[in-house]
Nucleic acid binder design. Structure first.
Lengths: 366, 366
DNA sequence: ACCCTTGCCGAAACCGGTTTCGAGGCAAAG
DNA sequence: CTTTGCCTCGAAACCGGTTTCGGCAAGGGT
């Protein structure tokens, strides 16, 4: 009987020494067999892996880590400070990451921070203790302290979003700019010629992108942008409400509004009510995010949905690849958002300056 | 100059060897000094800790783990399978745990599972690889496979909630039964004598507790429970809607309803509208959870709020204590929920069988 | 028959810590 | 002046893995 090393009292764990003893091999040989070194005979490799299976051997993650420098753990630092818009998606996001990590037998280490400085502090600690091998950075900003930190410490990372200086960055993102562009074209097809804009927080990278997509859509539709009906810096329903009031209070208010966030649109709903207008009747709205509340709004909000779970999974897989050495330039993916056509963008009462709606196009998903 | 061991190219990490060399001490001595052994002179200890501070030495978590058997990491397995009611709280919960863990320089490892069997599988993997030292088990059931697993593998755990067999269990919980009891007494004080009940999923431990609290409240108010106006097994808004319809369709419907979940109450709102009644006018409602939507409901929902962040923090601290050896019997805490009085439980139109409301008591927080 | 690869594996160093054991120094006790 | 004992620290084993290095045997070429 092989000698079993006991650790906690009563708990038996099969170590590589037990395996080696059982097989009559040196433990180094067993290790190399298990890790696919080329200097191990095929028969031996088989014998080893079978015995490992049979005895239920699982290498001790930390023991490997100390030599290889790999903890097989992905880091995620959540900013719990401000009321995050990704709150409703958090479970899906975590699920996606965790699943992507599990597939490679990696794990996910989560920490929280209350502001940007705290984020950097927390990440520094995780790096110093080598608790994680790399980071997933959600909600990237145009200039992002976390990215600078990772670069300076030479620790792998992947962005969920994009950033100002792409040098050395890998990312996965949803193509918000295409969505916004498509939103404009869709509204223009419905006859709208005065299309307003409510955009997100300035420093987030996605804000610029979506704004650019909006402008590109206008240009493509042959419409001139009017700064008077464009508001930025919105982050909450409250903000959206105020922005909506501003837009609808114009001498020549928009007949349609594109919102960079569902939350902004929800605020706009209330602003419209206050201004004596009603979304889906005489004001068309298209937004972005696909939060559950959007479906329950009255009228149901046409929006672009993001598959957060899939994003998490992709991010995990890509970060692991990055850690294993794939150059960042090969790890850049941008996938389209999916339009969910509901009724907030089809008007039942046409404003005076709108022509009758053309023949009903089948809704055009990307 | 001390020799610096480089690991990744270009990256310098201060190891305990560097520290020992710099100080002219044996590395074992340095280790003992840092860990507060009694056989180190006070002066030496000071000299060591100062040097560690100055050189920015942080012990490598995994290296410690391999000898001590402590990864200094807490495990949390989320069930992403069913649409979890704790979704809105997840950020707060994670924040609380993470903060509690950070205070002791521990970290949080998160994984997800899609069902109960998957939970056990995932936990088993984390245990086998010794990635975590213990688990936080949220949403405990009366008989819970996770608890059985932890007990059989002798790995520490703490419940967020309670369970059928308390033997060997540590827990932190919110006293939902007291809240439900108080809800009944409050409604009785307002004159209600027919108080309905909508309860949660049967197998969760909290459901029994809250139900018991409801019944205790009835007894204390001198009211007889009527099974006809009690519905259980509700978990979603949809369920709540159906349960509400059943209650309000009775020949002798309740004038007030206590809900074990805010979500159920939200469904009840819609059921009331369908049945030609209106919450806050001729139907009083008190619920439990304190989700954000409750404040936005029309009328705003009176409910019991749970400080999820504080719960997370307490759970982390208690689990660490458990791992360090505190017996489970000393780690059992139940704290009260906080009543948030809003307008859903004060009627503007009294049903025929209700006496006029007595003098307005100041709302009585626990 | 001899040399040179090549394939395969054992032995030992190593990773960065923790813990055990024992030795030296110094003070108090005999 | 020993002896005893405590305080403090060095040396080395240890934890569970990975990786380097070298040696032995078999096989191929001349």
């Amino acid at each position: 009987m092989a000698k079993i090393t006991t650790h906690r009292q009563g708990q038996a764990r099969v170590t590589i020494n037990d395996l080696a003893a059982e097989l009559g091999l040196a433990k180094g040989t067993v290790s190399r067999a298990l890790n696919g070194y080329s200097d191990i005979a095929e028969g031996t490799r088989l014998r080893v892996s079978r015995a490992a299976e049979r005895m239920g051997y699982r290498p001790l993650a930390q023991a490997q880590a100390i030599r290889t420098g790999r903890a097989r753990s992905l880091g995620l630092v959540l900013n719990a400070g401000r009321s995050d818009a990704h709150k409703p998606f958090l479970t899906d996001f975590l699920d996606g990451i965790s699943r992507g990590a599990s597939e490679e037998s990696w794990t996910l280490t989560v920490a929280t921070a209350e502001d940007e400085a705290d984020e950097v502090t927390t990440m520094t600690r995780l790096i110093a203790e080598r608790k994680v091998d790399g980071f997933i950075l959600p909600r990237t900003k145009m200039v992002d302290a976390r990215i600078r930190l990772c670069k300076s410490k030479d620790v792998p990372f992947i962005l969920y979003g994009r950033t100002g200086d792409p040098e050395g960055c890998a990312w996965f993102d949803i193509c918000g700019e295409d969505a916004m562009r498509e939103a404009v074209l869709r509204l223009a097809r419905f006859g709208h010629r005065r299309i307003g804009w409510i955009g997100g927080m300035q420093d987030y990278a996605y804000t610029n992108l979506r704004r650019g997509g909006f402008l590109a859509g206008l240009a493509e539709a042959g419409l001139d942008p009017d700064p008077a009906i464009m508001v930025d810096g919105v982050f909450t329903v409250e903000d959206g409400f105020n922005a909506g009031l501003r837009l609808l209070d114009m001498p020549e208010p928009p007949t349609a509004v594109v919102c960079a966030l569902d939350l902004a649109a929800l605020g706009l709903y209330r602003a419209a009510a206050r201004a004596g207008r009603r979304v889906g009747r005489d004001l068309a709205v298209i937004a972005y995010d696909g939060i559950p509340e959007a479906a329950l709004a009255d009228p149901p909000l046409t929006t672009f949905a993001v598959d957060t779970r899939a994003a998490g999974r992709a991010l995990a897989a890509m970060l692991i690849a990055r850690i294993r050495g794939t150059p960042p330039e090969e790890l850049r993916r941008v996938v389209p958002a999916r339009l969910i056509p509901r009724s907030s963008d089809r008007l039942s009462i046409l404003p005076p300056n709108l022509p009758p709606e053309p023949a009903h196009h089948p809704t055009t998903p990307v």
